[in-house]
């Protein structure tokens, strides 16, 4: 009997948590959509995760809004994904919050797509100083030039690297 009770309690707790996270994500998405309207597109919404897609021009604005109004104060990672079929490179910022305890488990993926032939994007280094090395890595791994970043240069790759950025899909590993 006792076991059943504890299990019930646990399931109740889980439900409460899920509801809470749903409420949180709903309020977050609502506030973004009311503020930015059509400029921001919601890609998916899962438990504790949601991804929003913005155009490169609105990237800085949205990031600033997320930081100032919702307390997303750091980036867990900034990465890129190459989509040669669409001729685009997607840049993802996984934003998290340390100052807002409600958003502790929550991660917003702020993403944007830039042109693959001439990839340039605004750097978020002035909003999130934590993206500094991540953006530098993205620059050398995918060739995305971050405007405003003070050091778009080699970081992890060999010093004499002269090939194309290796995380592009048309770069093939030898023998594969």
């Amino acid at each position: 009997m006792e076991k059943d009770k504890t299990q019930n309690n646990q399931t109740n707790l889980m439900e409460v948590k899920e509801e809470k996270s749903n409420l949180l994500s709903n309020s977050l998405i609502n506030s973004i959509t009311t503020n930015f309207g059509e400029q921001v597109k919601l890609v998916y919404k899962k438990e504790n995760r949601s991804k929003i897609m913005v155009s490169p021009e609105n990237l800085v604005e949205t990031a600033l809004y997320l930081r100032n109004n919702h307390g997303f104060d750091h980036a867990e990672s900034a990465s890129g994904t190459d989509y040669p079929a669409d001729n685009q490179i997607e840049i993802n910022y996984h934003l998290g919050s340390y100052s807002n305890t409600d958003y502790y488990p929550y991660i917003v993926v702020l993403s944007t797509r830039v042109d693959r032939s001439d990839p340039k994007s605004n750097s978020l280094i002035n909003i999130f100083p934590s993206v500094e090395y991540h953006e530098r890595e993205t620059y050398e791994m995918l060739g995305v030039y971050f405007l405003g970043h003070p050091r778009n240069e080699r970081f992890i790759l060999p010093e004499d690297w002269a090939d194309m950025p290796p995380l592009r899909k048309d770069f093939r590993i030898k023998g594969r």
Binding site: H74, E76, G96, Y98, S99, P129
Partner: peptide
Amino acid sequence: DAIKLGVTGSVLRASGVPFDVRKVE
């Protein structure tokens, strides 16, 4: 500074942010 730099793990917890993924998520 810890929040600004986005550090994590024991470095973050040593700076007074009780953030542990096992607990928060």
